[in-house]
Design a protein around this nucleic acid. Structure first.
Lengths: 215, 215
DNA sequence: GTCTATATGTTGATAGAC
DNA sequence: GTCTATCAACATATAGAC
């Protein structure tokens, strides 16, 4: 599946998650608007207009503007964590699993950079309860990388002194992709995933079999 | 100089850059407000109140709310780039310079995480001309790291295949510190700088003399 | 379920007294 | 230079017709 198809597919799934066709269109419109202008600068008029509806129609499907953000955040986090977790199970050695996990997580943030931007940078606009709920989801992602680093270090594959800090740095590297990634740039999400997998292996102090990252 | 003193010192300099005592207080109040709630969610009333003034007083010193953001952005970028550039000149080998540059850049984003958050994440709220001006400043920072990687690779100190991508990843790692850094957390800005310098050396494929990152 | 029309509050920015 | 008072525009959200 190409990056283009991946994005379309993902977008459809987000829309489908709303359960209702119109609600799904509003969700996609909100993602676009929030990513472009930020949650607070986005008006309900803007969202409704992008979905081809009147401002009032929004409130039939969602109680508030914040609920739109909440739905986007929950779905986005669930997706990203599933992608990360699934990849982390592919491979026998810790090095294989780390490379697969980082590659997939970075690639997701590149392919879905619009949604990822909302998911990663508009969290503070959530209500208090919704925010707490999302934080619980986020912790799982960090644990996945940390577990791989611990297993690899124990097995002698990696040389990592600060597991917590190194795992956090790897997550940070992937998340920040959403901020700067430009689909019209020279790197494809797949290339970026390969580069970042190689960089992560080096950060973990893994022995290098092939050529270095980016080859 | 401790991290605390460093932050205070920096804040004073930002305030002093305004030229006028009241204008400086407004600048500091705006940084706090923008960092906490974002540019668009911050009201001019909030900024004025934090500075202990009426909403109207703001417009004596700044034409618009956007001009406050612009002043903060310019000063912040100039500072961060100077810190990075100064550090990049300390050391004879490319490895020394890379470690010094990454350490200083990451540390700046941790120490000044409040200001850095505004500088790095509220850019899109700038007017078109101001935005273009800031982008010019930003390009310089990337060039500094890229030059070190190129020199180190040519000298045989580093093994980097994708210089552009690796330099971008290192910048990304440091910038994202502003998003997650918590001064009440367990890591000090100095510790973080040391960890990240070690990780950067590994990412560059430098030979490892001492213990790994985080030791 | 979707529309038009609007209630109700808040915003960025200004006018004019001191 | 700072204040109080205020404007005009715009925000989110709702009411009621269809």
């Amino acid at each position: 599946m190409s990056a283009q198809a991946g994005q379309k597919q993902g977008a459809d799934e987000l829309a489908a998650s709303a359960g209702h066709e119109t609600a799904g269109r509003l969700l996609l419109a909100a993602v676009e608007a929030f990513a472009e202008r930020g949650f607070h600068a986005t008006t309900t008029r803007d969202i409704a207009q992008r979905a081809g509806m009147s401002p009032a129609a929004l409130y039939i499907h969602y109680r508030t503007k914040e609920e739109l953000l909440y739905q986007i955040s929950v779905f986005g986090h669930q997706r990203a964590i599933r992608v990360l977790g699934d990849a982390a199970r592919h491979g026998i050695t810790a090095a294989d699993r780390l490379a697969a996990a980082i590659s997939a997580f970075a690639r997701w943030h590149a392919e879905h950079h619009t949604r990822a931007r909302v998911v990663q940078y508009e969290l503070s606009a959530l209500g208090e309860e919704h925010y707490a709920e999302i934080l619980t989801l986020r912790r799982r992602a960090g644990d996945i990388i940390r577990d791989i680093l611990e297993q690899g270090t124990a097995a002698g594959e990696f040389r990592v002194t600060d597991v917590r800090g190194t795992a956090r740095a790897m997550m940070s590297l992937c998340i920040d992709v959403a901020r700067w990634f430009d689909p019209s740039g020279s790197d494809s999400p797949e290339q970026l995933g390969r580069l970042y997998a190689g960089l992560a292996l080096r950060m973990a102090g893994a022995a290098e079999p092939g050529p270095g990252p980016g080859a």
